[in-house]
């Protein structure tokens, strides 16, 4: 899943060995599914139900519908959110080139470009922030965004190539808080945001960046 970064000896070879892939017994996987089929279908609680209506926001059914259709990054009903993609001024800043990834030219960090508050009456805690992620990668055929907000799925949030000079971008509605993320170039290359804030320093952590979204 992640690029490997050399570790200080003598632990490096141990960690490399521990990271070697293991193939699980296919029969064990089949057994899991056999047992699952014998179980009743789990019932979603209010907090997890995808289309459940937040109890505190009954007046905004249309907005909730919009959110249900568009957002993969919902919060639970207990801290439910209101989302509209308000057209807000775009904040961008040209950054530095990532020395570790020479194929990539200067890019822009993830920027918060607006709020999704649909009503003055909405509580501040119900705010989703609209965040734009931008990477300039002229040589890339595909770029995706993976982070803790999408289960580090390398396919669910593809970036769109916006310009001929290779600027890729995607806009997401994210809950306030601290989010780790990375770009996945051509399905294989994990790339830290060249101008984003690096995740917690650690000689062995994968190339990740962190964006902190304030309320």
């Amino acid at each position: 899943m992640f690029d490997r970064v050399p570790a200080p000896d003598p632990l490096a070879s141990l960690i490399d060995e521990l990271r070697e892939p293991v193939v699980g017994d296919p029969a064990a996987k089949r057994r899991v599914m056999e047992l699952v089929r014998e179980c009743p279908v789990p019932l979603a609680t209010v907090g997890a139900r995808v289309h459940a209506l937040p109890t505190r926001s009954r007046g905004f059914a249309a907005i909730r519908k919009l959110r249900g259709e568009r957002s993969e990054f919902r919060r639970s009903a207990t801290a439910s959110t209101l989302a509209t993609a308000a057209g807000i001024a775009l904040l961008m800043a040209v950054g530095n080139q990532d020395r570790a990834t020479p194929r990539l030219t200067p890019a822009r960090r993830a920027v918060i470009i607006g709020d999704s508050v649909a009503s003055v009456a909405s509580a501040i805690r119900d705010t989703l922030r609209i965040v734009q992620f931008i990477l300039t990668a002229p040589a890339a055929s595909r770029v995706a965004l993976a982070g803790d907000f999408n289960g580090w799925d390398t396919r669910s949030v593809p970036l769109t190539r916006e310009t001929r000079d290779g600027r890729w971008a995607v806009t997401l509605a994210l809950a306030p808080g601290r989010h780790h993320y990375a770009y996945v170039v051509d399905d294989t290359q994990w790339v830290r945001d060249p101008v984003g804030t690096p995740a917690e320093p650690n000689e062995l952590t994968p190339p990740r960046s962190v964006v902190i979204i304030n309320r």
Binding site: V32, C39, P42, A48, R75, S76
Partner: peptide, 18 residues
């Protein structure tokens, strides 16, 4: 791991997407 997946399935309704 088998047991984990089974328990996770049974508790899936309590999983929160955040």
């Amino acid at each position: 791991v088998q047991d984990t997946f089974l328990r996770a399935y049974r508790a899936l309704g309590r999983y929160e997407e955040r």
